[in-house]
Design a protein around this nucleic acid. Structure first.
Lengths: 213, 213
DNA sequence: TAGATTGTTAATCGATTAACAATC
DNA sequence: TAGATTGTTAATCGATTAACAATC
């Protein structure tokens, strides 16, 4: 009997590779390919086959010696680890162009992230509909959170409002923030923050371009 | 005489922290604070003071023993390393909601990234103006690149067009791609790719929420 | 069986942290 | 001078890679 190894927490570096494996496996599935080797996966992703095997080994290993990995099975198992398929409800705060773009994005719902409301403070935006959701005033957030399960708040507000809105959101008990403001957030320990710093990413790109890796 | 140490290439991990230092120093400057210690910076960013000093030491050290770092000077030096202030010209491919949000974003130009054109293939979008730029047809890209300095192409196209558009862009000689499609790009060695995988980020957030770090 | 490829341990590499002398 | 904080080396920690036995 082989036991799955959940003893020690999985490192963040491994977790961040899982969505990439998952996407690649989705592609293979669509193409009707049923098996894949660690070498194939590594080549595609620019990492070593050794790292691929090591990553899966963290969870007990999903392959068959001499054969490789079954695409369908591996896809499903990684999906389970990542919690894809369990629906999480998300609100978007900030209905500017970025907030609206997030609200309209197709890919999130497919992976279990359901957008259930959009908030802003600008009166001229209120009542406008993005997809099926009317933009609500931020004053209504408290009531909304009291009456709905909100798992994640996406912050697409101007940088200088980020701290304030993050404070509000955590006071209301929301435990996960997807932050797009170019600021550092200091949130309570039990609140998970994941930031997308667009400008940082662009600056690193500019640096690498000038200093050709 | 102290020589700046440019002997070995700086690790990517260090470079990715520089924009964060830079942003923090910008804030301090605005607040009129003139000195900062490695301890202050570390606390703010959730890293050790040792790491902060080690990072700056890569470039020869910018501080004064017993005092700390001069905010204005450090800000300027990090800016120089990152190449902030040298203008880079960027085009956006894909004028959907995400492409438009990028085009409208205020923060890029401030850091030297100038958006000079937007392209799409949908005829109903052509001619529409985003900021001062008219949306052009992708067929015009080749001419445009021939007549303008294009440093960076931001790819905000549907995932299934990503590879094709990346191929086009590299064939036209553009050396840096800021990729928003949820795909792995295989580009020539001399092309720099920086990807923002929104869905990956969201999935990791969901994972961390379920598995409370 | 021969060939292929994983599972798994060990070795290496690189990044982070600790420590403290230097010096403002 | 005493106190503070960097510059810099060494120690530690963690992540990646190599290697190969296991086994399909």
């Amino acid at each position: 009997v082989k036991l799955v190894k959940y003893e020690k927490p999985i490192s963040g570096a491994v977790i961040r590779r899982l969505p990439r494996y998952y996407r690649y496996l989705s592609t293979l599935k669509e193409m009707g390919i049923s098996k894949v080797s660690s070498k194939d996966m590594g080549n595609r992703m620019g990492i070593t086959s050794s790292q691929v095997r090591q990553d899966f080994f963290c969870f007990g290993g999903y392959g068959l010696q001499g054969y490789g990995y079954d695409v369908e099975f591996l896809h499903e198992e990684i999906g389970k680890i990542l919690g894809i398929g369990t629906t999480k409800q998300m609100i978007i705060i900030g209905a500017g162009s970025l907030g609206q773009a997030l609200a309209k994005h197709k890919g999130f719902e497919k992976r279990g992230f359901k957008i259930i409301a959009i908030f802003d403070v600008k009166s001229e935006l209120l009542g406008e509909k993005i997809n099926e959701h009317e933009i609500m005033h931020l004053d209504q957030l408290s009531d909304f959170v009291a009456n709905n399960q909100v798992d994640i708040a996406a912050l697409a507000v101007p940088d200088n409002f980020g701290r304030e809105v993050a404070g509000l959101v955590t006071r209301l008990g929301i435990k996960a923030i997807w932050n797009f403001a170019a600021i550092e957030l200091n949130t309570p320990e039990d609140v998970i923050v994941e930031s997308i710093h667009l400008i940082d990413s662009l600056i690193v790109l500019g640096y690498n371009l000038e200093n050709k890796k």
